[in-house]
Design a protein around this nucleic acid. Structure first.
Lengths: 266, 266
DNA sequence: ATAGTGCTTTGACGCAGATCAACCCTAGCA
DNA sequence: TGCTAGGGTTGATCTGCGTCAAAGCACTAT
């Protein structure tokens, strides 16, 4: 039995027990050039089922990694759509802007995620993508990806699967926003975050939030004060430990129950 | 200046002035067999830019129209995903089912819409599609569509555009559910309904709602009573005329303003 | 040290919308 | 003709969450 890496290399608050950081699954942590075949994320980000030859061909598509500093935008609403991106490192948010200065965060993204796929088939970006911490992404020019996916069926399936997953995620969010109350939303958020981090080889029960209470609120359709109160309540009831951005899930089943119960009367 | 067709062939309530029904844009209203080239919806539902030859090839894909009676499901959650559908006639809703018997309507669909595309790339349906009135859909087996789109670029683009539009619609819904208050949601709903019907050659300002207050509420994340009150208020303020399912927009700009204003304080 | 800034927490209060309930209308049907 | 069921409207009341405000904490700059 061993602890898995926290989703951060930075120091923990002193009052919190520090978890050990392990190598995230792949033996060679040194990043190579931009050749996908040597990338540490190869298992997670590339289409599966490509032949060696196809994989090499696919690698030629990819721009060398681009850095996006915390606070900077990878793209903005209105920009021409010409590429999708694989997140290689870091954490980003996608934002939708509406009239009257209203805006909403429509997603958070971290390593291994495909981002910017939502504008596929359109001319321009309708959302913008901003880094919450220093990040690195690999761009794939869309026109060439479209071409290549015509003669590599596995690539076509990969693309369609990414699109499908985006749609399914969106449906889940619509469901969350349309039917859940504040505490259910936050519980759901925490559990899904935990799942995603687990899939990336991090600890399922302990993590660092990369976003503010206000950003969580924007994503979940509630105000930052409500987010904060829900965190405090979960802590009071022993379901989580929270200290500012550091969260530990003590009783995920309780969070799950909190979402599941409370069906409509009879 | 002439009036356009209402989105129904049925009789109007007597107290409402009846609009004239005109032919919906295409000269020959008699439906042919299942040959797309003779379908009255050809302009709206088929990929544009196909050569005559490609169009004939595409037509061979399509199953002959399938009828779905009001209340019946076209597919259910858990069904194998094997086809997408073009709505040829009628009106349907898609529903997402959650734990504890909760459910939410994620979309309404009418003629010319592509439905069932959300499960692309997955094995099984995650939502279900139920007809609100007697409907007709043309199925397209997905595996063959995927194949064919590899050698017909216009078809590939068409597919990607459909997926993109689905994603953009979902984002708009997330924005609506996450940032708008009840009256704004309903105003937004009415305007978007009006737009969609206009694009199909119906009257932009007068239409029949095919769904109940409860279904509108489910879609917009509010209770049926709140929907009803918002309708009444809009009518009191002279923005719409509403009599049960029959709606006329008297002042669309006012509805638009209702959404636009009310930014967050400074 | 000190001040300033951004983020978080917590309390007090108010309101939008949910809930509960009564009643109406229409359609279908015995 | 009357009964029933489903849908819609409206009123009264309740409550979850937004709003407003104050204060604390961690960082950074000076």
């Amino acid at each position: 039995m061993h602890t898995r890496a926290l989703n951060t290399p930075t120091a923990m608050p002193v009052s919190f027990p520090r978890s050990e950081r392990l190598a995230p699954g792949v033996a060679n942590p040194a990043l190579g050039g931009n050749a996908c075949t040597r990338c540490r994320l190869r298992q997670r980000c590339l289409p599966t089922g490509l032949s060696e030859e196809n994989l090499r061909e696919f690698s030629t598509l990819i721009f060398s990694p681009r850095r996006v500093k915390a606070g900077q935008a990878l793209y903005r609403a209105g920009d021409a759509f010409d590429a999708i991106y694989l997140v290689r490192r870091g954490f980003l948010k996608s934002i939708m802007l509406g009239e009257a200065g209203r805006e909403q965060i429509t997603g958070f993204h971290t390593e291994g995620d495909v981002v910017g796929i939502d504008a596929i088939g359109s001319e321009r970006r309708t959302t913008e993508m901003v880094a919450l911490e220093d990040s690195e992404v690999c761009g794939i020019p869309y026109a060439r990806l479209e071409d290549m996916s015509r003669h590599i069926p596995a690539l076509q399936r990969y693309l369609h699967r990414q699109l499908s997953e985006e749609i399914v995620r969106n449906h889940s969010m619509m469901f969350l926003l349309g039917t859940m109350r504040a505490e259910e939303r936050l519980a759901s958020f925490l559990l899904s975050l935990s799942e995603r981090l687990t899939a990336r080889g991090f600890s399922p029960s302990e993590f660092i939030l990369r976003m503010t209470r206000e950003e969580i609120g924007s994503f979940l359709g509630m105000k930052l004060e409500t987010v904060s109160r829900a965190f405090s309540k979960f802590q009071r009831e022993g379901m989580i430990l929270v200290e500012s951005k550091h969260v530990r899930l003590l009783d995920p089943e309780a969070l799950q129950r909190l979402i599941g119960r409370q069906a409509q009367p009879q």
